[in-house]
């Protein structure tokens, strides 16, 4: 059994993906075991190849990097996700971390930063691009610790319902959309408010806006 770090590259850009493969494979302790050109392929290949690290782009056709990260982490919690993206926005950054990414690197990074990031997340550490790490600290300092940690423990369904609430849908409309009963929606809403320590629908909407759950994907 090889003791190299096994990497799956998920990026829709053919040239970049192929070049990364060559770049990473030239390191003696790294091995690229697969290339996925979209999020769905990344989820499927992660399940079959069991890589140590998935190098994940955010903007991909079909299933995007955010949803692919959520699915991989749900099925394969031992797989470490390192985001490699052009997106500098807080919205993507925080969503990817909440989805379970262990690292976030911009495509403007130097080669040695990428290689160090892969090694770091493979051994279970977190690696953040320096300017993004600063934003994380600022965000942490600007909110109550209990709310920040609670947000990371929302279920997929609760996130979905929070997003729909923030988009202005009533409990009945959400129930119709998700094909569940209004009382189930009410129950999820109550859980959301309890976990996030919020007291009203209005506060839920404000929270969703702050977290970037509405107003773009």
């Amino acid at each position: 059994m090889s003791d190299k770090i096994r990497i799956l590259i998920a990026d829709d850009h053919t040239i970049f993906r192929s070049g990364l493969n060559l770049l990473l494979s030239s390191e003696v302790d790294l091995e690229v075991v697969g290339e996925a050109k979209d999020g769905m392929a990344a989820v499927e290949m992660a399940a079959s190849l069991h890589p140590d690290v998935v190098l994940m782009d955010v903007g991909m056709p079909g299933l995007n990097g955010l949803d692919a990260t959520r699915q991989i982490r749900a099925r394969l919690p031992e797989v470490n996700i390192l985001v490699l993206t052009m997106h500098r926005s807080d919205e993507y950054f925080f969503q990817m971390l909440e989805a379970g990414a262990a690292g976030y690197l911009l495509k403007g990074a130097e080669t040695n930063e990428l290689i160090n990031a892969v090694r770091a997340v493979a051994r279970g550490d977190v690696f953040l691009y320096p300017s993004m790490a600063r934003r994380l600290v600022q965000e942490y300092l600007s909110q109550s610790p209990s709310q920040g940690s609670a947000a990371a423990h929302l279920t997929e369904r609760e996130r979905e319902i929070l997003k729909l609430i923030a988009e202005g849908f009533s409990n009945g409309e959400i129930a119709d959309r998700l094909v569940i009963s209004p009382s189930t929606v009410h129950s999820h809403r109550a859980n959301l408010m309890r976990k996030l320590e919020l007291g009203s629908r209005h506060e839920l909407v404000q929270y969703a806006r702050q977290k970037g759950l509405i107003g773009g994907s």
Binding site: I15, G19, L20, L23, K107, G108, A109, E110, T111, L114
Partner: peptide
Amino acid sequence: WTHPLFRETVSLL
């Protein structure tokens, strides 16, 4: 190319 990572990947290819 301004991005070093991309410049290097293209060069390798």
